[in-house]
Design a protein around this nucleic acid. Structure first.
Length: 553
RNA sequence: UGGCUGAUGGUGUAAUGGCAACACAGAGGUUUUUGGUGCCUUUAUUCCAGGUUCGAGUCCUGGUCGGCCAACCA
């Protein structure tokens, strides 16, 4: 095997990992984690993080934990836990451990008391307004809280009482005692525990105090022995605090590294905004095929591999980015081109009557290949009959130059069947074309063409009486502007009202026999996937993505 | 008027002091029983000003512009 090993350039995090492994840091151990908060569904931005974290340990050894960052019981729910696990698995990744920050509540409580004991935390009775007022601004230092110098004993006692439910929600918090004049706002005595009389999805009513993110995340990393804790750029300023806690608590020094989150054109990526779209019914749910969620993309028909390939291609960097959604669509098409079963569907039927059809025959069986990219994929049959449907767009009475579909007097091949010639155009009283009378060339059958006729155009068709109806959900981008979040005003003002158009179409009669996992290419049209709600009795297809458009009139 | 962070074609990503490359998007051609696919060609890039160096996208200095930071969210 002297295969040329292509030199892959490493992203900056891989470089760090490789260097750490080489230097023997943590005895060469590598452990990452993917830490979602179970308060929403995963989206394509999370996929980037998933591919990074799991990809690192796939490439360099070690493992990745799935850890739910469930420190805020009022927004979190097991529904989200289940969807997140399902989505990670669907993308093709396996975690070594499933953990919850709430698993560490007892330990975190002890850590807090240790901080108090070291004189590094205190209970503050200030209201949130008072605290905000004393916090200062990024360019002006804050002021010490009047409660900042309580004794260690008093703090310990007060904190225990907080945990025992002796104080009202919002009346007291535990704060780290750091530096109210720090240029980093997060170091100005951050709140580390607050009172919430809320039912937690895992710990139930055991606690009425819950740690803040900053007091849970780094410690959870440390407890698990995470070597590389990877997060997005907005956490850069949290790193100083992250390190401070680990140092003062004298626990395993996990390290945090930050990369730029993914932004995609014509969509929004914050969970807050996505939740709003769901709650306010702009979409049908988290898994609406227009959503940038993993479940939405899955429902739309995006293959997991296309998403992973996309994430590999966009790379990992620290600069803000806005990636063209057409790059994602490229990977979807690339994948589906190799896997989708080719079938024919007619969206806007125009009747074609074959005037010279041998009526004594009834129908002529034609054989169509399932996928030209995969010769072994086999074939299926479709009947060529006297009355057919073709697409309205495939006929023009007065065609422009270079239009090589059907027009009066011209010939075209019906895909997988015969060459036909348009002899007569039938109009209604408004001048609309209602029917084409055509003759077919009996010797031109696909695969055994002896006619010697060469035609430029090939169009799709269906037997009029044998094709069946299906509901087609046509999706377009959810927003009318490239970057809804950066526009002035409410992002919802830029929603594309035509992002879902439901239509009826005719499809081949064999379609009900395929299972729900089959991905289709409606020839010359696009890729389509059976919707979750589709049944053999009522077929429903989601438009995954269109084919690249060539000729435009 | 603070701190942190970043800047390479239209969009992304590489080049680790030595010919600025790859993908997507765009344009053109070719093949094709999908105006798809494949194949070929092509347009277009180092934020600015100095400096170091034989040589700078890369190193240094100073600017400019962008992003993040003042939730009892994560």
């Amino acid at each position: 095997m002297s295969e040329e090993i292509k030199e892959k350039s490493l992203n900056f995090i891989e470089e760090i990992v490789v260097a750490d492994l080489k230097s023997g840091k943590h005895s060469g151990r590598l452990l990452t984690r993917f830490p979602p908060e179970p308060n929403g569904y995963l989206h394509i931005g999370h996929a980037k993080s998933i591919c990074l974290n799991f990809g690192l340990t796939q490439d360099y050894g070690g493992g990745t934990n799935l850890r739910f960052d469930d420190t805020n019981p009022v927004t979190e729910d097991t529904e989200y836990v289940e969807s997140i696990k399902n989505d990670v698995k669907w993308l093709g990744f396996n975690w070594v451990n499933e953990y919850y920050a709430s698993d560490y509540f007892d330990q975190l409580f002890k850590f807090a008391k240790k901080l108090i004991t070291k004189g590094l935390a205190y209970v503050d009775d200030s209201s949130s307004e008072e605290m905000a007022a004393l916090k200062g601004t990024p360019s002006q230092p804050g002021t010490d809280s009047p409660y900042r110098n309580r004794s260690i004993d008093e703090n310990l006692q007060l904190f225990e009482s907080m945990a025992n439910g002796e104080f009202k929600e919002g009346s007291k918090v535990l704060r780290a005692k750091i530096d109210m004049a720090s240029s980093n706002m997060l170091m100005r005595d951050p709140i580390i525990y607050r009172i919430k009389f809320a039912h937690h999805h895992r710990t139930g009513d055991k606690w009425c105090i819950y740690p803040m993110y900053d007091f849970a995340h780094g410690q959870s990393d440390s407890i698990e022995g995470i070597t590389h804790s990877i997060c997005t750029l907005e956490f850069v300023s949290h790193r100083e605090l992250y390190d401070w806690f680990l140092e003062k608590l004298e626990i395993f020094p996990s390290r945090q590294y930050e990369f730029a989150r993914l932004n995609l054109t014509y969509t929004v990526m914050s969970k807050r905004k996505l939740l709003q779209l769901v709650n306010e019914k702009y979409v049908t749910g988290w898994d609406d095929p227009r959503m940038p969620t993993i479940s939405g993309m899955r429902r739309r028909g995006y293959p997991a591999k296309a998403i992973v390939d996309f994430c590999d291609r966009i790379g990992i960097q620290k600069r803000d980015n806005l990636i063209d959604v057409s790059l994602l669509e490229f990977f979807v098409r690339e994948n589906l081109n190799k896997t989708a079963t080719r079938v024919m569907a007619v969206f806007n039927p125009l009747k074609v009557t074959i005037t010279n059809f041998p009526t004594e025959v009834g129908s002529i069986e034609c054989t169509l290949e399932n996928n030209p990219e995969i010769p072994e994929s086999g074939s299926r049959s479709l009947n060529f009959t006297k009355e057919l449907w073709i697409e309205k767009d495939d006929f023009m009475e007065n065609p422009p130059n270079k239009y090589f579909r059907l027009s009066p007097g011209k010939m075209v091949r019906l895909k997988g069947a015969f060459i036909i010639q348009c002899d007569e155009v039938v109009h209604d009283e408004n001048g609309e074309v209602t029917e084409l009378k055509c003759s077919y060339i009996p010797t031109s059958k696909s695969g055994q063409d002896e006619s010697g006729i060469k035609v430029k155009g090939v169009i799709h068709w269906l037997p009029a009486t044998e094709s069946i109806e299906a509901e087609i959900r046509m999706y377009e981008r959810l927003f009318k502007v490239e970057d809804p979040s950066s526009e002035e005003g409410d992002f919802k003002d830029f929603i594309n009202e035509d992002s879902l158009v439901t239509i009826k179409a005719y499809v081949e009669p064999t379609l009900p026999s395929f299972d729900g996992e089959t991905r289709f290419q409606f020839i010359r049209n696009g890729y389509y996937a059976p919707d979750l709600d589709s049944t053999p009795e009522k077929l429903i297809f989601n438009k995954t993505v269109g084919l690249k458009e060539g000729f435009k009139i």
